[in-house]
């Protein structure tokens, strides 16, 4: 692969997803970064905050808005060794969602834990 790294450096990467899955391209293109980034064997976590929690909503159907339903890819992240998914508790609750509404296994954390996750990360992508 052209972008292969041989430095052996492993950093804590955090992808912060803050936007609804559809309506703008950010969520979809963020997922593309996660998938490519998985090849670099970094220590990867994903955080879902604000409307970003909707990205993980079960049973999305985009057929009538003619955009790609990329929501199924979140369930495949495990195969890329991307296994640390964190969801902000307040964001979930204020949108009337529970963990059962989500399509993948996540860890629901409060804002204090989320702050710690962000502070402890070395490379943060904010989409």
């Amino acid at each position: 692969m052209e972008d292969e790294l041989e430095s052996g450096v492993v950093k804590k990467f955090l992808y912060v997803n803050r936007r609804a899955p559809h309506g703008t391209v950010y969520a979809h293109e963020a997922l593309e970064v996660v998938l490519i980034g998985a090849a670099f064997e970094q220590d990867v976590s994903l955080a879902f905050i604000d409307d970003g929690v909707f990205q993980l909503k079960k049973e999305q159907d985009t057929s009538e808005i003619y955009t790609k339903n990329f929501s199924k890819i979140y369930a495949a992240l495990e195969m890329y060794d991307v296994e640390k998914l964190y969801v902000d508790k307040d964001s979930l609750e204020s949108r009337g969602l529970t963990e059962n509404d989500l399509s993948v296994d996540v860890k629901v954390i409060d804002s204090k834990e989320m702050t710690k996750l962000i502070v402890d990360s070395e490379v943060i992508f904010n989409f």
Binding site: M1, E2, D3, E4, L5, S7, V9, K11, F13, E32, V33, I36, G37, A39, F40, Q42, V123, I124, F125, N126
Partner: peptide, 21 residues
């Protein structure tokens, strides 16, 4: 023009990665 790997590499190699958006 190149791949997203170039972004990940920037994250790994640079002391700081700064996002504008």
């Amino acid at each position: 023009i190149s791949g997203l790997g170039q972004l990940i590499e920037a994250g790994v190699q640079a002391d700081r990665l700064i996002t504008f958006g």
